[in-house]
């Protein structure tokens, strides 16, 4: 694909000059990350796809408003975060159960989708790893919103603490403390379920 060697800012500047192909490159570069960010933030794959679509449409509509004061990535994730917040407000008013939300009554916190869909034969899957990731995901979902927000921004979107502080308009040390609390909560959650760290230590 063309423009592979160019930065996000250069690609977006090209798009601002009318080169749609540059935006295609940008979209392919970031769509999964945005999708994953929304998944972590909302805990729902279906909502995350909608959010991702809305985020990129907002980007093209507001291309002229981008002033380059922050990096394109930071700007993009700021839009994504706002979009996720909007979706969360909508979820608060939703009455019916979501297939992606943790099912009520399920002690393991599995979703309705996981409970009702045909389970593929997963012999080859690493059940331990799957369990660990599921625990992590559950721990992330159970985090307070302000900690989850910081965790997703730093861990999933890979935005530096300084930029997160600017985005959320809070001190950088506050961002770090929230991140630390989030990590310790996840670690405690894994410890509570007897997670064997030595199997996954980096």
């Amino acid at each position: 694909m063309a423009f592979t060697g160019e930065s996000d800012e250069q690609l977006f500047e090209r798009y601002r000059r009318g080169e749609v192909k540059a935006f295609e490159t940008l979209y392919e570069r970031h769509k999964r990350a945005v999708f994953r960010f929304a998944c972590r933030y909302l805990g729902s794959e279906g909502l995350a796809e909608d959010v991702m679509q809305d985020v990129f449409i907002k980007i093209v509509r507001n291309a002229a408003a981008w002033e380059g004061r922050s990096s394109f990535t930071t700007w993009m994730y700021a839009i994504t975060r706002n979009q996720c917040l909007d979706e969360q407000r909508k979820l608060a008013h939703r009455r019916h159960a979501s297939l992606d939300a943790p099912a009520d009554g399920d002690p393991e916190g599995r979703t309705l989708h996981e409970l009702t869909a045909d389970q593929q034969p997963g012999a080859e899957r690493d059940s331990s790893a799957r369990e660990a990731m599921e625990r992590v995901r559950q721990a992330i979902a159970n985090l307070p919103e302000e900690q989850r927000e910081v965790f997703v921004l730093r861990q999933t979107a890979n935005i530096k603490f300084k930029d997160i502080a600017a985005m959320l308009d809070i001190p950088e040390n506050t961002v770090k403390s929230r991140m630390r609390y989030a990590l310790e909560s996840i670690r405690a959650e894994l410890d509570r379920h007897g997670f064997r760290w030595e199997d996954f230590m980096v």
Partner: peptide, 26 residues
């Protein structure tokens, strides 16, 4: 080390391809 492991698990780095939660890195 534990913090790093959490990060890897979150991004699916420690999981084989195809496993993990929806949206996971792996």
């Amino acid at each position: 080390r534990k913090f790093r492991t959490v990060g890897v698990l979150e991004s699916g780095g420690g999981v084989s391809r195809g496993a993990g939660a929806p949206g996971g890195g792996g």
